[in-house]
């Protein structure tokens, strides 16, 4: 099995995530793009796990998923407070701190 297609796919996913973070305004969407990046990593981890013939990568993937879930908890909480204060979930509106 060649790992290349999988890695290329994961790289593409990662890139999409990156681009999404940069281009999307809505905090929720931005956050989803970050999740996409994490999942791209998961794909790579699992692929390498398979290629290397050990389970470390798969275990890692699980960890990443758990951590991503935790991140969601914290992230959504923060986004919620911001949304409630500002009536907007656009990341560009929160720009009082600058210079």
């Amino acid at each position: 099995m060649s790992v290349t297609p999988f890695i290329v796919l994961s790289a593409i996913l990662f890139t999409i995530g990156c681009v999404g973070v940069l281009t999307r305004r809505n905090a929720i969407v931005v956050f989803m793009c970050v999740e996409l990046m994490l999942n791209a990593s998961n794909l790579a981890l699992v692929t390498f796990s398979r290629a290397n013939g050990n389970l470390d990568g798969q275990i890692a993937a699980f960890f990443v998923m758990v951590v991503a879930a935790a991140e969601v908890v914290v992230g959504l909480a923060i986004i919620m407070t911001i949304f409630r204060s500002r009536r907007s979930a656009s990341v560009d509106d929160a720009s009082l701190l600058k210079y």
Binding site: V91, A94, Y99
Partner: peptide
Amino acid sequence: FRRVQNGLVRSYALTLL
């Protein structure tokens, strides 16, 4: 260069990238 720090999180992400 202070102006580069424009308060927009997406532009920070861009510098990070």
